[in-house]
Amino acid sequence: MKSATVFFFILSAILFLGTFKYLLAYKRPGVYPPKQVLKKRITALAGGCGICLLVASMLSYFL
Rank of each mutant, 00 (worst) to 15 (best):
G50N: 04
A56D: 15
Y61K: 08
P34K: 09
A25E: 06
T19A: 12
L53F: 15
K39D: 05
G18P: 01
K21N: 11
L53S: 13
P33A: 14
F20T: 12
P34V: 12
L11E: 02
L17H: 02
L45H: 12
P34G: 09
L24D: 13
Y22E: 12
L11Q: 02
G18Q: 09
L59G: 07
A46V: 07
P34T: 14
K21G: 02
Y22D: 15
L11H: 01
V55H: 05
I14G: 01
I42V: 10
I42M: 05
F9S: 03
L59S: 05
C52K: 02
M58G: 14
K21T: 05
I51W: 04
I10G: 02
C49D: 10
A44V: 02
Y22T: 14
L24N: 06
L38A: 06
P33V: 08
S57H: 02
P29E: 09
T19H: 14
G18C: 07
L54S: 15
V37E: 05
L23V: 01
G47R: 01
V6S: 04
F20C: 10
L59E: 09
K40P: 00
L38N: 11
L24F: 15
I42T: 05
Y22W: 08
I14W: 08
F20M: 14
V6M: 04
K39C: 04
V37S: 04
K35A: 05
K35T: 10
P29Q: 09
I42Y: 03
Y32G: 13
V55M: 09
I51C: 01
K39N: 11
K35L: 12
P33R: 11
C49T: 13
K40S: 12
A44Y: 04
L23N: 02
L24P: 03
V31F: 11
C49P: 00
L23G: 07
Y32E: 11
L24A: 14
G50D: 08
P33W: 11
G48W: 02
Y22V: 14
A44T: 05
I51D: 04
V6A: 04
F7C: 07
Y61C: 03
G18S: 10
I10R: 05
V55L: 12
P33T: 07
L53C: 13
L38Y: 06
L38H: 07
K21L: 10
L38K: 08
K40G: 01
L59R: 13
I14H: 00
Q36N: 13
I10A: 06
K27P: 01
P33K: 08
S60M: 01
L38R: 11
V31P: 03
